[in-house]
């Protein structure tokens, strides 16, 4: 009895001191976390309050933290701005091409890399890894020359094509496909099903989560992509939203129309942030699985 009681007592006192220490540390920890969260949120606070202030108000007191009179005037002016609707439609069209391309190309390639046995497989996988590593600045000059040669300069297809089969998506699909048991595919093979039938009928229906991650990651890539559309789009008719927004703000810079810029910033940010709030799991999986956006 006593021999059992002794360690139990020690354990309990240990627990008690730990609890006491925690009761001091907890509020401190929460305080620090809340402070960090507020600092992180600052830009979102600025953009929300700034976009709701009238141009006159911003001009007379650019640094005020809150609007004196809340107005949607900036958003109204934004949607009346020449070409803005066009930029929005262009961004959506490019995103649709990119997402569709990634689902098709990455599902097929990822499946082959994980589940098929073939010559030069290691080279193919090496190419996927290499493609993730090559800096954009190394390839964009030739990418542009090729785009011009293909007659795709200043077109939405030209903007979408380089991102239509992201190595990141292939990697995500391959990792997922590795977890699908071989027995399932082998059984179908014994039943005489062809490789394409196995892929479409057996593998794809199982690959939902990976397809979801790829959809989100490639949408994020396409919607936020900036340099490449900036290079390819030469006339406002093929500007995507970020390019159009940057151009609008540069045009507005000498008159510093912050109201218009901030309203535009909200329109660009909002779709992705809303998606993120609802589908956070996929964003975090996609990015932490590969460390890339």
């Amino acid at each position: 009895m006593t021999t059992i009681a002794a360690p139990r007592n020690a354990e309990m006192t240990g627990e008690r001191t730990q609890r006491r220490r925690r009761s001091v540390a907890r509020p401190l920890l929460y305080g620090a976390l809340v402070l960090c969260a507020l600092l992180t949120m600052l830009p979102f606070v600025w953009v929300t309050s700034g976009s709701l202030r009238s141009l006159d108000e911003i001009r007379s007191d650019p640094g005020a933290w809150l609007p004196q009179h809340v107005t949607l005037d900036n958003f109204l002016r934004l949607f009346q701005t020449e070409g803005f609707g066009r930029f929005l439609v262009n961004s959506i069209v490019v995103a649709v091409i990119v997402v569709a391309g990634n689902i098709v190309a990455a599902s097929a390639a990822g499946y082959a890399l994980a589940k098929l046995d073939f010559a030069a497989k290691r080279i193919a996988f090496g190419a996927v890894m290499a493609a993730m590593m090559v800096p954009f600045t190394t390839v964009f000059v030739t990418q542009f020359v090729i785009t011009v040669d293909l007659g795709l300069a200043d077109t939405l297809t030209g903007i979408a094509l380089p991102g239509a089969a992201l190595p990141l998506s292939v990697f995500i699909m391959r990792q997922y496909a590795l977890s699908v048991p071989d027995e399932l595919l082998e059984a179908a093979r014994i039943d005489g099903a062809g490789e394409f039938r196995i892929f479409f009928r057996i593998f794809l229906p199982l690959a939902g989560p990976a397809v979801a991650t790829i959809t989100i990651m490639s949408f994020l890539y396409s919607w936020n992509n900036f340099i490449w559309p900036l290079i390819v789009a030469q006339s406002t008719s093929s500007y995507t939203l970020p390019v159009g927004l940057a151009a609008t703000s540069q045009a507005a810079a000498h008159v510093t129309d912050y109201g218009l810029m901030l309203a535009g910033a909200i329109v660009v940010m909002l779709p992705v942030l809303v998606l993120f709030l609802f589908l956070q799991r996929y964003f975090v999986q996609g990015i932490s699985g590969t460390g890339m956006r």
Binding site: P43, G63, L220, M269
Partner: peptide, 28 residues
Amino acid sequence: TVFFAPVVTNVVAVAMIWQYAFNAGGTV
């Protein structure tokens, strides 16, 4: 969620917000 939100936020938009906040008479 809060700490991860900047990762998915459009950089063109954020840069504008920072220009607004860091200009001579800005919020900062």
